[in-house]
Amino acid sequence: MTGLIQVVGGAVVDNLTEPAMLLVARRSAPEKLAGLWEFPGGKVEPGEDPEAALTRELFEELGITVRLGPELPAENADGWPLNERASMRVWFAEIIRGQPRPLEDHDELRWVPLADPDAVLGLPWIPADFPIVRALLTTLAVPAGPAFS
């Protein structure tokens, strides 16, 4: 079904080859989501490629330029369900220029260690992002080696 609003999110890591840290963003708005953590990103504009949208959104929201890595596989082609009207596709990303700052929609950024799943899962995530966080940790645990075992 293609009538869904397409949203893109960035799993911004310190290194695409050997990720050890994940950058997470705390929402400042809307009120019902304020104070909850999420993957930074946003809506894909009409006619815009999802990867281009993510690159644009990360620059607008955090002031960073990124290199995109692989997409985090979702159970269906539309991506991860956010609600009945929207779904999100998530890509791994590495910063290649800029220092991340909460410029838009966020009031705090934090690097969390991927080797400590409790630190990652212990954050108050937006409920729709929580299954994505679990999938990300599972995905990284498979090929990663000792740090993730």
Rank of each mutant, 00 (worst) to 15 (best):
E45D: 14
G79N: 07
E84W: 02
R56W: 03
A74K: 11
E104V: 02
I126V: 14
V13L: 08
I64H: 01
P124Q: 10
A29Y: 11
L137P: 08
V13N: 09
L82W: 13
K32C: 07
P146M: 15
G122I: 05
E18C: 06
N76Y: 11
F59A: 06
L23M: 00
P30T: 09
P70I: 13
R89M: 08
A29R: 14
E104L: 09
G122P: 08
G63L: 07
P19F: 03
A141N: 03
N83K: 05
P73G: 05
I96V: 15
L72K: 09
L54P: 04
G79S: 09
V66S: 08
M21E: 12
E48S: 10
L36Y: 03
P127A: 04
P100A: 01
G98N: 11
F130K: 10
D49P: 07
F92I: 04
E60G: 09
L33F: 11
V44T: 00
S28P: 06
R56H: 06
A86N: 11
H106P: 02
D107W: 04
L72M: 12
G98C: 11
W125Y: 00
K32E: 11
R89T: 02
V90A: 05
P19D: 08
E108C: 13
A77C: 09
P100C: 02
R67G: 00
W37F: 04
F92H: 02
D129R: 04
A119I: 02
M88S: 09
A128S: 12
Q99G: 10
P146H: 15
A11N: 04
L23V: 00
I132S: 15
A128T: 07
G69H: 11
S87V: 02
V24R: 01
S149C: 02
L136I: 03
E38S: 04
E71T: 10
L68C: 08
N83D: 14
P127W: 00
A29T: 14
T55C: 13
E48W: 12
V142Y: 14
E61L: 06
S28M: 03
L136G: 05
R101C: 05
G41V: 07
A29I: 09
E108G: 13
V24M: 01
N76H: 12
L123S: 00
A135N: 07
V133F: 00
A53T: 08
Q99V: 13
E104Y: 07
T65N: 06
A93C: 11
L23F: 00
W111E: 01
E57W: 04
P81H: 01
W111D: 00
A93I: 08
V133Q: 00
I132N: 15
W91V: 02
E61H: 10
P30C: 05
G69R: 12
V8E: 12
P113F: 00
P40M: 07
E60P: 04
P81T: 10
A34I: 08
L136P: 04
W91H: 06
M1Q: 14
L54V: 09
Q99C: 09
F130M: 10
M21N: 13
